[in-house]
Design a protein around this nucleic acid. Structure first.
Lengths: 214, 214
DNA sequence: ATTAATATCCCTGAATTCAGTGATTTGTTG
DNA sequence: CAACAAATCACTGAATTCAGGGATATTAAT
């Protein structure tokens, strides 16, 4: 029972490399390759009779990217498995893909063995994620949870941003047309709320959240 | 006049992909491929009679990495050109390689056309760097220059790090077995030296320099 | 060897931060 | 509407920051 695969990647070299290592495995049919997600969508939409087992796709592609493609496949062709292969691995992308039920995720610098293992695992009905990807994902979840419940109000965000931008209490009060005492209250509440010790802690929080650029 | 190339990369897939796009060009001989730099060093050392034009190498490889390999080639076999191809591109690596006279640098996600153009350019005696690499390199140089002259001493770095970690003056003094007054002096000098206004500014500087994690 | 830089310590006084407490107003949500 | 969250302002008092001075000993550099 041969499996039918589709590969989508706009990098000729990666495509060739992948084809070469898949060629050594006799039980995979590469039925279609594409330079971007739109071609894959079209192919799948037209060839409704053909059994398609797995779509291997890059994330960054022109026109229709891998994230969109994966979402589309999972919404319209639930039975087709997907394996995403990417150069850049931000927590956001990984999270997004896992949320939309991708079956596997590898970094492009994975070794041949891992590629084959991932494909096998996915075709066997299980999910496969490389160690690095799992680490990034868990790290992200962990941090998110650690910082949950702490929600700053609009005003608090304004104040902490200005604090991190090195303005004094009086300057912030003037800027926001508030009393100096109010800003002092905000500062104090922020320190309590965010469980930090002083301005340094507030500044680090503001940077981490992107309220200011370091 | 055919050119003789060597390729070093521990990723089978990348190697295969590169070979496949080079095969379409009839004037390149791939005379040797290797999984790490040591093999290339050995090959070059033994085959002294053979004309070797270009070594294409990955950065991260087991045993002898691409940076070491490039340095070795440039020191011992000046006439051999080198092209580095890498996944990860930190300013440090790029800087290091350019300093040791690498002839080209590409990201692994480059397109076929760019690979061929880079090889051609280098064999023609010129250097070739992808736009991204040039940007990273220049950005780095630019920032370095912008922040030059401001050099913190070891002690100052210690102090600013601890400040950014939210320790109080007294705590820092205790930690470093110094007087509280000394730390106050350091704080004051740092504020002057770094041209910031307060703790928030010091903290941002410490984060930007990586003395603390935000 | 002389200068320059680094590391260390000290003082004053004004300004600010920080912890603790509390009050009023407005808007939101069950 | 009642309860609650958000936004605003106020006061006290201790601790710390910050700006401005200096001083001395050791190390590095020219």
């Amino acid at each position: 029972m041969k499996h039918n695969l589709i590969i989508a990647d706009d990098h000729k070299m990666f495509l060739d490399g992948l084809l070469s290592i898949l060629k050594t495995e006799s039980n995979y049919n590469i039925i279609f390759t594409a330079k971007h997600g739109g071609h894959v969508q079209k192919y799948i939409s037209i060839n409704t009779e053909e059994q398609i087992d797995l779509v291997i796709t890059d994330v960054t592609m022109p026109e229709v990217d891998g994230i969109t493609l994966n979402k589309w496949i999972k919404e319209n062709h639930r039975t087709i498995k997907t394996l995403v292969v990417s150069m850049h691995n931000t927590p956001e992308i990984i999270d997004d893909l896992i949320e939309s039920n991708v079956d596997g995720y590898l970094q492009k610098n994975a070794q041949k063995e891992e590629f084959l293992k991932a494909i096998e695992t996915i075709l066997g009905g299980e999910k496969y994620f490389s160690k690095e990807i799992k680490d990034i994902y868990l790290q992200n979840k962990f941090e998110k949870n650690k910082e949950k419940e702490i929600k700053l109000t609009k005003r608090e965000v304004e104040v902490i941003s200005l604090i991190a931008e090195e303005f004094t209490t009086q300057e912030i009060a003037d800027k926001l047309f508030l009393s100096k005492h109010t800003i002092e209250s905000y500062r104090k509440n922020l320190i309590t709320k965010l469980n930090v010790r002083n301005l340094a802690g507030l500044t680090k929080y503001a940077i981490k959240k992107g309220y200011v650029s370091s």
